[in-house]
Design a protein around this nucleic acid. Structure first.
Length: 291
DNA sequence: AATATTTCCAACCGCCTATAA
DNA sequence: TTTATAGGCGGTTGGAAATAT
């Protein structure tokens, strides 16, 4: 036998959250922490599905969520991350502290896809997994399943529909589906730090020397268990002490991680410029990020 | 000012994987 | 080993707000 059902959805509230519900949820999580979403609504006195509570917390109530418009820097970073990772919104969000996957997804669909199309820089859907056989398969399944649902679709697919116009595709990067390895749950609140810190044991992490690193620079990609936990360490041959706890902690601060990311993308862009570089190197790079 | 259309985004849906039983 | 569920994810929806006519 498995576990008990998450929620019955009978008699539960749906739709927009009221300030009172927000307060109840926030209060409960501040007192007891995240997790156990199944039991949380009842304990917190909420008539909501656990999933709904989790979503509300993750996308709106978390204290570390950054409010306000996406900055030009973030905008640029999202574009580059998307070109690299495709629609892995949670992965992208993991590299943008304070931003949620939902927010980035919305931002992409409403702003960036149009922007990029307008600039003719790239097809906004190029990085969708149209080149990913697994995604294609899934799409086909979904199409057959949701076709009746979509018949009644009103105005909304305009964004996606606009994006369908074919443009020359960039060389495709095969992105394997992200794999969840660990079972322990990490508070999303700290996901960024966890991404860059391998606390204590290094059992979940290993350094990968990426073959396309140029010159003296060795790129070490820390493979963490969490699907969000793809950490980057780029530097000059410091891999010997890469996993010393103290060293890692030093790299957990956001500004450092941001600059590290910048370096990573400089390398990545460099790769894109050098057409003669083997496409397989890009593939392995992208795969490394997702393992 | 009234109405129509478009844009934006919070929330929902359904699938997938890890894992408890 | 098998089965069912929790948690997490990306895709989609619907309504409010903004803008155009």
């Amino acid at each position: 036998m498995g576990r008990a059902p998450c929620c019955t959805k009978v008699g539960l509230h749906r739709g927009p959250w009221t300030p009172k519900e927000d307060a109840l949820l926030t209060e409960y999580i501040q007192a007891h922490g995240e997790g156990h979403w199944k039991y949380l609504p009842k304990k917190a006195g909420l008539l909501r599905c656990g999933k709904s509570c989790r979503l509300r917390w993750m996308n709106y109530l978390r204290p570390d969520i950054k409010r306000g418009n996406i900055t030009p820097d973030e905008d640029d970073l999202i574009i580059r991350l998307h070109s690299l990772l495709g629609n892995r919104w949670s992965l992208i969000a993991g590299r943008l502290p304070g931003r949620t996957d939902n927010e980035i997804k919305n931002y992409w669909n409403t702003h960036l896809s149009k922007k990029l199309r307008g600039q003719g820089r790239t097809h906004p859907n190029t990085h969708k997994k149209s080149s990913d056989p697994a995604q294609e398969l899934k799409k086909q399944r979904n199409n057959s399943k949701t076709s009746s649902k979509n018949k009644n679709r009103k105005k909304h697919n305009h964004i996606m529909q606009k994006a369908i116009h074919a443009e020359p595709e960039k060389p495709k990067i095969h992105l394997p589906k992200a794999i969840r390895v660990t079972s322990f749950s990490l508070p999303r609140i700290e996901s960024f730090e966890y991404n860059t810190v391998v606390s204590g044991s290094s059992s979940h992490a290993e350094a990968v020397d990426v073959p396309w690193s140029s010159g003296n620079t060795t790129t070490n990609i820390v493979k963490d268990g969490d699907v969000n936990g793809v950490g980057f360490f780029i530097g000059d041959d410091h891999h010997d002490d890469l996993f010393h706890g103290s060293d890692l902690e030093c790299q957990s601060h956001i500004p450092t991680a941001d600059s590290t990311l910048e370096k990573l993308y400089e390398e990545y862009l460099q790769l894109l410029k050098t057409e003669e570089e083997d496409q397989r190197q890009l593939d392995s790079f992208a795969e490394s990020l997702l393992i």
